[in-house]
Design a binder for these strands. Structure first.
Lengths: 254, 254
DNA sequence: TAGGACTGTTTCACTGTACGGAACTCAGCA
DNA sequence: TGCTGAGTTCCGTACAGTGAAACAGTCCTA
């Protein structure tokens, strides 16, 4: 998965892994009891009890009405990552503006470990995508990020990633991907033509720092019915370009 | 170290604590090397190495250019907490609108463990407050939350909290706090009169679910110079009330 | 009201493992 | 060619994490 991954599974602390296994269990199902966690993790009841005691003691887990929940203290740690770059924070605001102005879903995506991670988003209230990881090759924003890498890096990416098919339109052939990236480079934006989920299209542009380093990708997506229109695409791309430019300017001149 | 630990939490896993100690070290200082973390944590180098190996293996920590960073995978877990309640997500949008419309800093605060935690915020790009914890009694939004508790709970809160003084205006006397809460209940909003940081004032209103449960508090804050004006306060409070109402409506009718 | 069926909590002996120190590799540099 | 200071690996040992089982509550049902 990640680059230059050395096999050091031997050197590790399995206790920590168990704690995180519990946390991840609580991520998918909140409000579980000790015995429920026990069933889901294949750990013994006393082990779960002890780990939860530690985690609640530290404030990372909260107990309410006999159910365990992930505490807000983790926010403090993870939020740090969302503000590592000043541009990330600037992007947050632009994502919001994009969403409000276009009434489409807007996202800001960055790469980590050869995957796309949503850092910011504007969209429906029911579902958040923040922190979710998606394959770069099947997203407009992901492909845009790929275009910024040099050839060696892209080769390595393709080698380590299997271009899994998600829809009929997913790019699964490396040559097709190279070609697609060339086109994106040429036109300056990427399009997702129902490549990750059928019925869902998107458009994205790269975001640069004042020093012209890649910060991430700014994207809009919505139902294919709307996004198929070339005129709609053009309008959205123009808007995306404006916002990406504004981020750069914000960073340069405060 | 020595024998005879007075730790009451005898049931716990200290290994997990060590892992989190490393994570918290990386929270305050990013990009540290193994030896730097060793110095800061009083753990042995091999221990730090082993913990980092596990954490990077799980993706919670990222190694780049010999420096260690907190990975975005923690976002996936912590973001869950920010969306536990549908209202939290609705509040996010309203915070943004408030910020845009008033050009002041806007926040949405909830309570956890007798502390106020910022869930959402709109403000300057340089500093994020999300996840930060503040004493309830010294914030407009915090006091608003306190008013919603019954007397027993407030008594217990005051008993367990020492009303530490932050500025000349901080409420440090329990009786004064009771009185203040009464006033807030009466007028339906809270004011922070430079009680946490001198020069900084704020206003806040409670946010309710359609079932009239307290969701959190919506607040605006800014320099005392502006917020001292009664007319300004009234205008901001009106706006806060509108937005709080909109959250309720959104939850009720989608 | 007793008893069953659940919880969560605690105890305890065992043993697996996390630990620290030291040895090792490796890179940069004088 | 050493020297320094990184990261990595090794290893014996202490001890902390472990699971099973016993214990303590609580809520039902009969």
């Amino acid at each position: 998965m990640t680059t230059e991954r050395v096999d050091r599974t031997d050197a590790g602390v399995s206790t920590t892994k168990k704690s995180f296994r519990i946390l991840e269990t609580l991520k998918t199902e909140e409000g579980l009891t000790i015995t429920e966690i026990t069933e889901r993790t294949n750990l013994s009841k006393s082990t779960v009890y002890r780990h939860l005691a530690t985690l609640t003691d530290m404030g990372y887990v909260i107990e309410t009405d006999g159910g365990y929940y992930i505490g807000l203290k983790l926010l403090e740690i993870s939020e740090k990552t969302r503000n590592r770059e000043a541009g990330y924070t600037a992007a947050k605001r632009k994502v919001f503006e994009l969403g409000q102005e276009t009434d489409e879903r807007a996202v800001f995506l960055v790469e980590e470990g050869y995957e796309g991670v949503y850092l910011h988003r504007y969209g429906s209230l029911s579902d958040t995508m923040i922190g979710k990881r998606r394959p770069l090759y099947s997203l407009a924003s992901g492909k845009v990020i790929l275009t910024e890498w040099d050839d060696d890096e892209i080769d390595r990416y393709i080698e380590e990633t299997d271009l899994e098919r998600h829809t009929a339109n997913t790019i699964t052939d490396p040559d097709d991907l190279y070609e697609e990236l060339d086109q994106i480079r040429e036109q300056g934006y990427g399009i997702n033509n129902e490549e990750y989920m059928s019925g869902l299209c998107g458009a994205a542009v790269p975001v640069y720092t004042p020093g012209d380093d890649l910060l991430g990708a700014l994207g809009l997506f919505g139902p294919a019915s709307r996004f198929k229109e070339k005129s709609v695409q053009n309008e959205l791309v123009d808007r995306l370009r404006d916002k990406a430019g504004e981020i750069k300017v914000t960073l340069a001149y405060g």
